[in-house]
């Protein structure tokens, strides 16, 4: 699964994108797996209320299922316009 990071999430983790080998069934399970990896991940995912997630380029919730998902992205609330 491709995992993408944007804005300060990208900066905190230190890379824009990575391929993750995971059996996670939900976004939350994936977050827990990433948190357990290293301090920089734990820091980036310390406050989920400050994060948004997209599954296959559609905004989703943290309890969204990952079955069949190819791409998951984590980012702060958007500031377009």
């Amino acid at each position: 699964m491709e995992v993408l990071y944007f804005a300060w999430v990208r900066e905190r983790i230190g890379l824009p994108k990575e391929t993750v080998d995971t059996q996670a069934l939900t976004v939350m399970e994936l977050v827990d797996e990433l948190r357990a990896r290293e301090e920089r991940y734990a820091l980036a995912f310390s406050d989920l209320s400050a994060l948004r997630v997209a599954v296959d380029q559609d905004l989703a919730d943290f309890d969204a299922p990952l079955k069949g998902a190819r791409e998951v992205a984590f980012f702060p609330p958007m500031t377009g316009g």
Partner: peptide
């Protein structure tokens, strides 16, 4: 359109000065 572009289109703004750079908070 403007209301939704502000907070539902995946853009993130960062302001850079000579001394610092900071992500714009939503």
């Amino acid at each position: 359109l403007m209301d939704f572009l502000k907070s539902r289109a995946p853009f993130w703004k960062k302001e850079q000065t000579s001394a610092s750079h900071e992500w714009v908070a939503s």
